[in-house]
Structure formats: C-alpha cells, structure tokens
Write a protein that binds this DNA or RNA. Structure first.
Length: 327
DNA sequence: AGATACCGCGTGTTTACCTCA
DNA sequence: CATGAGGTAAACACGCGGTAT
C-alpha cells in the first residue's frame, strides 16, 4: 500500500471527527444490495482503489465487497486507514455526478437529512456529498460571475457607443456653430460700419453741446438720444441684450440693463462652463463688449433701497451681494 | 449575558487525474 | 509509446457566523 499524503494522521482524524465512516456491512449493503436510484443496470460503477496509480481507476461490474475482500491485510481497526490510504483521490462516476447535478438543480443547499440520503443513494460518504455540493456551489458562482461580467460588459459597451455617438454629434454641432458664427460676424461688422458712417454723417452738422439747435425735430439732442436709447433697450434688453453692440449706445446700455433688471437677462451672462465653455475663446471677439457689462446677478436686489444706488456703484461693493457668506 | 463547542458554509489552496500536443 | 503542460474535479485548510448548551 502506497502511503498517501492526503490521508495522513491529521486528515484521518478530521475525517473521523466529521463523518463517521460506515461499517463494512453498511458499505456492502449500499453497493450491493441497495435498490440504487441511479439504476446502474445491475453493475456497480465503483472506484477501483486497488489499481489507483496503475492506469484505469474506474472499473465496473465489480461488487464492492469483492474489492473489500482484496484488503485481506486490513483488520477492523485498520479498515478505515486502508480504505483511505488506497483511495487517494478518485473521481465520481458519471452516474453519481448526474444524480448530484439533478439534486443540485432542485436545491443547491444541502440539509443534513438530504445529505445522508444522497450519500446512501450514491454509495458515497456524507462528507463526499457535502464537499461535492460545496465545490459545485463554487463552480456555479464562478460561472455566474462570468455571466454577470459578460452582461455588464455588454451594457458598458452599449453605453460607450452611445457616449461616443453623442460626442461626435456634439463636435458636429460645435463645428456648425463656429461656421455660422464666422458667417455672422462679418455681417455685423458691415452693419456697424454702415451705421457708424451714417451716424457720423448725421452727427456732423449737429452741435451736441446745445439743445437749442433742434429744429423741426430733425435734430435730436443728446439727452433725447439717451432717452430713446433707454426706451429701446428697455424693450429689447430682456430678450436681446446681445444687441448691445449697437454702435450708438454702448455705455447707455449698461444703464438700461441696470435699471431694468430682468430674469431673462440673467441667463445671458450666466457663467455656464459646461459643454460650450471651451468655446469661450472663440466667442471672445463676439462677446468682448458683453463681458464689460456687469452681470445682472451682481446687482443685489434684496434691499430695494439699494436699487437706487446701482448706478455706477463700485465693483468691490458687489462682492457683498455676490458672496453673501464669504469669509 | 457571556463563554464555549459544534456545525455548515465560503473561499482559497493542494492534490490527483485526464487530455492533448 | 512516453512525456510534460494545462485543465478540472475532489479534497482539504482556515476563518466566520449561527446556534445550542
């Protein structure tokens, strides 16, 4: 009998502790006389403990008691040692595995009664059944993890594709915006040049220092211009602050926007640094004049009394309203 | 209520066996 | 046919939590 590392004294004691080994009579009855549900067609597919290490291990049509009879050197006290020392590691038969698999499908946990019954039915030790279920659960978990990983990976790939498509679409739209901007800016310049030249023509004969030059209403005094500008902007500022590049009322526009705080105007200067924040450089030319305007939220409206002081207040004063809780 | 022993399970590892190049 | 590598399954070791005493 070749010694086995597997079933050394410590392991043997463990085996004896955990699962009492069946007597030879019980084993014989299990293997020979039992009405085995696996229906081995009368033959007993068992492990050939004798031939372990010398080739084929599983033999059929050999009653278990005949195998035991070969262990003539084993007395009762030595039976268990002989049983294990020769056993080494043996694979379960396909029938046993199939039966265990069916049992596992029904319930992957193993109650003590069921374990004993399965061991009886299969001619195995209860500990073997327990170990098989443990290993089977581990294999199942591994498979499940692989499956879950596959599912998650597929989901991730789908999301990534969506994201990439969105990025592409975003880039496309940005290009479109830039293209349109380049088309619009020259037009604005043309318009502004036209207007300024026209204005220069209109202003030339007018004495801006005097209100008395107005005749037939054809000449407009400066204060009236301011008023007109205010009125126009009061109507348009809410939705079109961007028109502030109108050549004749830059600074005045500031006043109008101060005087007419609107909720709409606030969003125009909203410091949105989201997707289009990177376009700020491109927008610099277009928005230079806008950036000089005070942000509408810079103005504190909490105290109505302050509104009257909003004209030309110092910038540093705004910080109080803008960062009310700053330390 | 805390201590102890026992048991089953999960997880990682070892070992034996099988397959295949 | 022999052999070594890699894969797989059986068995083990250890720790942990639950339960009974």
């Amino acid at each position: 009998m070749a010694g086995s590392k597997l079933f050394g004294p410590s392991n043997m004691s463990l085996l004896l502790q955990n699962d009492s080994l069946p007597s030879s009579e019980v084993l014989e009855s299990l293997w020979v006389h039992t009405s085995n549900p696996l229906s081995f067609q009368g033959s007993k597919t068992i492990v050939d403990f004798e031939n372990v290490g010398s080739g084929s291990r599983v033999v059929t049509d050999i009653p278990f008691f005949q195998q035991l009879e070969k262990e003539e050197n084993c007395g009762d006290e030595e039976y268990e040692a002989c049983f294990h020392q020769q056993g080494k590691k043996r694979r379960l038969s396909s029938e046993q595995v199939q039966f265990l698999e069916r049992s596992f499908e029904v319930e992957n946990k193993l109650e003590p009664d069921r374990k004993v019954q399965l061991a009886k039915d299969l001619g195995l030790q209860p500990r073997q059944v327990a170990i098989w279920f443990q290993n089977r659960r581990a294999r199942f978990k591994t498979k499940q993890l692989e499956k879950d990983y596959g599912t998650l990976k597929a989901s991730f790939d789908r999301l990534k594709d969506d994201y990439d498509n969105l990025v592409q679409e975003n880039d496309k739209l940005k290009d479109e915006v830039n293209f349109l901007k380049k088309k619009v800016i020259p037009l604005d310049k043309e318009n502004s040049e036209e207007k300024s030249s026209q204005e220069a023509i209109n202003k030339e004969p007018m004495d801006l220092t005097s209100n008395e030059n107005s005749e037939n209403g054809s000449k407009v005094s400066f204060p009236n211009m301011v008023l007109k500008c205010k009125q126009e902007d009061a109507n348009s500022a809410k939705s079109d602050v961007l028109d502030s590049d109108s050549p004749h009322c830059n600074d005045v526009n500031n006043l109008s926007s101060f005087m007419e705080p609107t909720t709409d105007s606030s969003h125009v200067f909203e410091p949105d640094h989201s997707d289009f924040s990177q376009d700020e450089e491109d927008n610099d030319n277009l928005n230079d004049n806008l950036l000089t305007l005070p942000k509408i939220e810079d103005v504190c409206y909490d105290d109505p009394r302050d509104n009257s002081c909003n004209f030309g207040f110092a910038v540093e004063d705004q910080t109080f309203c803008f960062w009310p809780y700053s330390i």
